[in-house]
Design a protein around this nucleic acid. Structure first.
Length: 661
DNA sequence: TTTAGGG
DNA sequence: CCCTAAA
């Protein structure tokens, strides 16, 4: 299949606006992708394990790629990762890295340039490491959200990846990815990595550490040396190297991440033991953080602002009044957490450096998590995915990637996603089930993006999101809607009971645990996804699974994309990873949305306000969108239109958004 | 099986 | 959400 991925000058402008324009000099103008490529899809867990993506995840990624192909951009002039998507550039998000044969023209006629390959590998490794770092921190912070990161690499790198720890090449299996996966979104997770000169920049220092192992994971366990952190520290003034030192002092381990901003953020979080990264200046005395100052004029300001704006209020994931703990504990925490995971809980955690380790930072899988895992597990063991198939195709190509690997493999015109199983996973077990998690891949951001009526903005948003956990709402969304009711919007977003914790989509790195938790508990503290027999003889889902905002948005998006009525389609493409939510559910939800959107059209304050809060405050913009879609598809429920109805908002919206569907 | 509606 | 008719 062919796909054109165009990059318009305007888009660059958009990026520029977003503040990341610099990176885009490397964008190709237009690229035709016609050749099938072989991809492997793995998810990077925070602890470094590389686990195979579940079917659902594959589906989802597929969906993303397919859905977005026409609007995706690719970075083609550099022989390295074509792109990656991350909803935050951080753990809580999905990190999707892709590579395709295209854009690697240098491979077409000649042998692979070892340097380039190395650079790409290193890039990947760095990405992985970052993800892991992020994840680790989130874990340490007690985030209950399970983030995921996906990495898709083509054959050129896959064989190399095999050499990385965490991947057991003997456990590969294939997952056919129906079509070519041509599109990519340039990742700006590391803006600098995508700059033209980035390759050199990021590859001059070998990322591989001892034994070619991925740097992060278990590696160094040297104690954090907080003594090195005495006095005032202004992260903004530090060089990469200094940041590295600070990092090490804080976390007790080395890092090879070269993203300054990331380092700063990470360190900040480590020092404050919170997710509030607004401060970059610290005064440390006697191994204790005495003061943290709000910084100004750092290049991170934008992000911080956006962050706060999006989140509404800065949420600190550390308990209030809790003693500032040192980064080391974070690390230790994670370690012990790992142990705990194998035992089921932390009750028996041996030697944790008790001190001020906050109980909150102990991540304990939720029941739901386990359930879902179990669900998947059984599904897998049912033979759907065999881990035996593996290497066949993959092995071949990996052995000859020196030539035209991708094409070789794709000679059959088929794209294959190879599943990698995690070897590293064997070391760490998650209670009850395999490491495969299902239906909680962070794709919400896509929903957000897609929801954005402005396609242009989408690009920028994507980029921005990818850049880091600094902005969590689509630019346009923010600006557009914000004009009318900024606070409202964010409150709505925040107020939605999102038990799925999908807020991490717009949430930040470490996750806003407070929000998440509150939200979490407010919802179905824990739902039995299982169906239970009804007194009437039938079976029925035990608890209603409250619709998440992101789900709603996804739905809306799906409807707009595939049309109302095509619910199986929507289910399949947009809700691939939501094992629950049948097409019927979607339909029903849509019906409700429709009703809702036309019901309380304007501001039925008073009575409604409270009711809404109790129920589910669907952001007006969404309702608006629903309304508009309904009108467009002439689904307008005739009797529901009350008073002001379509007249005002309807038409205007219509105009405003026409053309985006 | 998937949709559309009613309950 | 469930159930069912209809396609």
């Amino acid at each position: 299949m062919e796909t054109e991925v165009g990059v318009e000058g305007n888009d660059e402008g958009k990026f520029e606006e977003a503040g990341f324009g610099k990176t885009y000099s490397s964008l190709s103008s237009t690229k035709q992708l016609t050749d099938p490529v072989v991809y492997k899809l793995v998810r990077v867990e925070g602890d470094g394990r590389l686990v195979p993506a579940t079917d659902d995840e594959v589906m989802e990624v597929k969906g993303l790629l397919i859905d977005e192909k026409s609007e995706m951009h690719i970075v083609a002039d550099i022989g390295q990762p074509i792109g990656c998507i991350s909803n935050e550039g951080s753990s809580s998000g999905m990190l999707l890295q892709l590579e395709s044969s295209e854009g690697l023209s240098q491979f077409e006629n000649t042998e692979v340039d070892p340097d380039k390959l190395n650079a790409r590998l290193e890039y990947i490794e760095e990405m992985l490491q970052k993800v892991k770092e992020e994840e680790r921190l989130r874990l340490a912070c007690g985030s209950r959200d399970y983030s995921s990161a996906y990495v898709i690499v083509d054959s050129q790198c896959s064989d190399q990846l095999d050499k990385l720890p965490g991947i057991d090449e003997n456990l590969q299996s294939e997952i056919p990815l129906q079509e070519t996966v041509p599109s990519f979104t340039p990742s700006l997770i590391d803006s600098h990595l995508h700059q033209s000169g980035s390759i050199d920049e990021c590859s001059n220092t070998p990322v591989l550490t001892e034994g070619g192992a991925l740097p992060s994971t278990t590696v160094t366990t040297s104690k954090p040396d907080f003594s090195k952190l005495n006095g005032e520290i202004c992260l903004d003034n530090l060089s990469i190297k200094e940041l590295h030192e600070t990092f090490k002092a804080t976390f007790g381990r080395e890092t090879t991440v070269k993203d300054k901003q990331w380092l700063k953020r990470r360190i900040t979080m480590g020092l404050t033991n919170s997710c509030d990264v607004s401060a970059t200046t610290f005064i440390i005395k006697d191994n204790k953080l005495v003061k943290k100052g709000k910084e100004d004029g750092c290049d991170n300001v934008d992000g911080a602002l956006a962050y706060n704006l999006a989140v509404g209020t800065t949420i600190n994931c550390s308990q209030q009044g809790a003693p500032i703990s040192h980064g080391s504990q974070l690390e230790d925490q994670v370690v012990s957490d790992k142990r705990n995971r194998s035992t089921g809980d932390n009750s028996g955690s041996e030697d944790h450096h008790t001190e001020q380790r906050a109980a909150k930072r102990v991540r304990k899988p939720t029941r739901r998590y386990i359930e879902e895992l179990s669900e998947v597990e059984s599904k897998e063991s049912s033979g759907k995915l065999r881990t035996t198939v593996k290497s066949s195709a993959f092995g071949q190509m990996s052995s000859k990637f020196h030539f035209r690997p991708v094409r070789n493999v794709s000679s059959d015109g088929r794209t294959v996603v190879t599943r990698l199983d995690s070897l590293g996973g064997s070391g760490i077990q998650i209670p009850c089930v395999s490491r495969v998690r299902r239906s909680r891949p962070r794709k919400n951001f896509m929903a957000l993006l897609k929801f954005n009526p402005n396609s242009m903005g989408m690009t920028a948003t994507l980029v921005k999101k990818a850049l880091g956990a600094h902005s969590f709402l689509p630019d346009n969304y923010e600006s557009e809607k914000a004009q009318s009711a900024p606070a409202q919007v964010q409150q709505r977003f925040l107020g939605v009971p999102d038990k799925d914790k999908q807020f991490t989509a717009i949430g930040a790195v470490g996750g806003h645990h407070k929000v998440l938790k509150q939200v979490d508990s407010s919802g179905d503290s824990d739902d039995n996804i299982v169906t239970v027999p009804t007194s009437k003889g039938g079976i029925r889902r035990k608890h209603h699974r409250a619709w998440t905002l992101s789900e709603v948005m996804k739905l809306v998006e799906g409807v707009s994309r595939y049309g109302a009525g095509r619910w199986s389609e929507i289910k399949r493409l947009a809700f691939a990873s939501y094992s629950y939510r049948t097409s019927v559910d979607l339909k029903d939800k849509w019906r409700n949305l429709l009703k809702a959107s036309f019901a309380h059209i304007p501001s039925d304050k008073g009575v409604n306000s409270r009711k809404n809060a109790a129920t589910m405050p669907i952001p007006e913009p969404i309702l608006l969108r629903v309304r508009e879609l309904a009108e467009r598809q002439s689904q307008v429920p005739p009797n529901l239109t009350s008073g002001k109805e379509a007249g005002s908002s309807g038409s205007s919206v219509h105009e405003k958004q026409s053309g985006y569907l």
